[in-house]
Design a binder for these strands. Structure first.
Lengths: 151, 151
DNA sequence: ATCATAAATAAGAATATTATTATTTAAATA
DNA sequence: TATTTAAATAATAATATTCTTATTTATGAT
């Protein structure tokens, strides 16, 4: 069921395809929503596969580093999603934590050349944008406006 | 002592310039190295200013979101550095956690337009690159080579 | 200078995340 | 198929990070 692309990627970097790793990926694949590490852990328990929470975290970190999984850091902890078809990034509202996908990716090969120059093999990257959404901006301005009216 | 630029930025976004916030920024300004939240907290205790660890974390998060501070996520936790002169990003070795600065930034205004389109005010961003450094790559290959020799 | 108020803080409890170490396992090769 | 070994895992202990709530404070307006 796993994308062959993912298998190839893991093998290429010398990582093993363990049962646990497969199941973690599968849970993410099945999920319609972004998940926390804890949620993935709970799903796995339902499936009766023995996976420690530690293993979930370890794998999410690894998979993020090599670009198979995308991590989104919120106040309340991190969310993870499987990188499907199109590579993309996320914009998070600093007030309400609303998340919006930004479809393009600005990290071009030319940019990675600098990194190569440092002698690194580039495996992946994570870009998160922060901002304030329309609603939250309005609310802020409303507060100021109300005050003026009252005065 | 604080860069006026930072003060302007905070005020513009409606954030207060508290003693604690000032001191956190000052500790980072004085430091020659990247610091963990805990290290910043300890520095502040030496200065005899009352700042809770919670406050340190809260501020680092806020300051990262609006681009005044840069966060670097390592296995062992996060490091923080004040964004000085030139905006830049970091490349981290997934094996040894060596950090290298990449001077340019690929996040151009044109890219941010997409974000604007979603009705967001963009405040900042965080980009982290992952790779494997020269040394770690060599070590991996050595292991394989040794095996071949032995055989 | 005083007042009003949203923003910020401290304290301590609750969670999330990582480290350590002994054991197990995938995968390469004989 | 059996052997070998780096990689991966589980268990649990240790840290790091966040939440909740009551209190304090910076700031803008009087």
């Amino acid at each position: 069921m796993l994308e062959p692309k993912i298998l190839v990627r893991l093998k290429k970097e010398g990582y093993k395809l363990t049962k646990q790793r497969q199941q973690i990926l599968d849970v993410m694949l099945q999920s319609k929503t972004r998940l926390t590490a804890q949620e993935i852990y709970k799903q796995l328990q339902r499936r009766e596969l023995s996976v420690s929470l530690d293993t979930v975290y370890r794998n999410l970190k690894l998979l993020s580093a090599i670009g198979i999984v995308q991590q989104i850091s919120l106040q309340s902890g991190a969310l993870y999603e499987l990188m499907q078809e199109e590579h993309h990034h996320h914009l998070v509202c600093v007030d309400c934590e609303k998340i919006v996908c930004i479809s393009a990716c600005p990290v071009m090969p030319s940019y990675l050349k600098d990194a190569d120059a440092a002698g690194f093999d580039i495996l992946g990257h994570n870009l998160e944008l922060y901002g304030r959404c329309n609603d939250c901006r309005s609310k802020r301005q409303l507060r100021k406006a109300e005050k003026c009216v009252k005065d």
